[in-house]
Write a protein that binds this DNA or RNA. Structure first.
Lengths: 160, 160
DNA sequence: GAAAGGTTGATTATTTCTGTCGAGAAACTA
DNA sequence: TAGTTTCTCGACAGAAATAATCAACCTTTC
């Protein structure tokens, strides 16, 4: 239970933008509704995604947000790391800046925490929003199998 | 960074008991020193481990704690779950009581969160304190290599 | 009965999480 | 130009989780 709410919202918002990946910008209001997120939270999160170059924004009427790259070029790991921070389960197992374990004579738990970290990273960094959007556009209502296949497709058709 | 301090302390304490697995009870004081944990915190955590049947205690002089099972029968996952709760990264991906995703038409992110959960569980539930103690008793002073597998060679993570 | 050591529950300070608000800046429209 | 729409930015407040400590109590041994 370590993915926080903001990260959840952020990933949903990007997913929504990936599913709606037409050339059009989409308003915060619309994203808030589609992702069941408080508007005021998206007002904080989207600028963060923008600063990281994941989305692009336009102001004024007919403004809104759109993805700044092809969905296939945006990994889930990137978004999670952005909002949440390092993916290691514990400070002594981050890839950089690993904190030294203060336990007597060093701690062998670290290897296991690192294995968890690596497994997590492997999944999150190989899952792109193209994958996610492809699964979503089929039947949003059905539970989705865990396969990570990338259909030839590119931007998905707009589904109002 | 989701393993909290108490879980860290608890796993270290159990590891210490596994390494010192003679027939003798070990005092909180000793465990606190070996694991670099505040004594007052162990005073809270060890009773919790005891209530779960992981360790056993004896009172009075010459009292202390010892493991209640063979180290090979205690998995890391069990201890982590006990102190930390479910291993799923997000509420909508717990194995039981999964929370319904409020996103429009359901959410395909859930499959990925579940994959992370499964990979985590696979590692944590297959790592026993016998494995950890074996690594520890070899060379405590050296940093431990980050292998994605357990000493006895069983395959671990779901992803290659 | 005294000392050592585990047991229990209350308590406090700190940090993180989550969501809200208000004032402002850019872009379009009339 | 005036006004509307939409994104932008920073401050803030309540709630919850963390982390650590303390005091008082029970058990066992000597």
């Amino acid at each position: 239970m370590w993915i926080n709410r903001r990260t959840d919202y952020a990933t949903r918002a990007v997913l929504a933008l990936a599913v709606l990946d037409d050339g059009q910008p989409h308003k915060l209001q619309e994203l808030a509704e589609r992702t069941a997120t408080p508007l005021t939270v998206l007002e904080q999160v989207l600028p963060q995604l923008r600063a990281a170059g994941i989305v692009r924004s336009e102001r004024g009427p007919a403004g809104g947000y759109r993805l700044n790259h092809a969905p296939a070029d945006i990994t889930l790991g990137r978004v999670v790391r952005l909002i949440q921070g390092p993916l290691a389960p514990i400070a002594c197992a981050t890839r950089s800046d690993a904190e030294r374990c203060p336990m007597e004579l060093g701690c062998t738990l670290q290897a296991t925490w690192s294995a968890v970290r690596d497994a997590t990273i492997a999944i999150l960094d190989e899952t792109t929003f193209a994958d996610l959007a492809a699964r979503a556009s089929g039947r949003w209502t059905e539970p989705v199998p865990v396969t990570v296949g990338v259909p030839d497709g590119r931007p998905l058709a707009t589904r109002a």
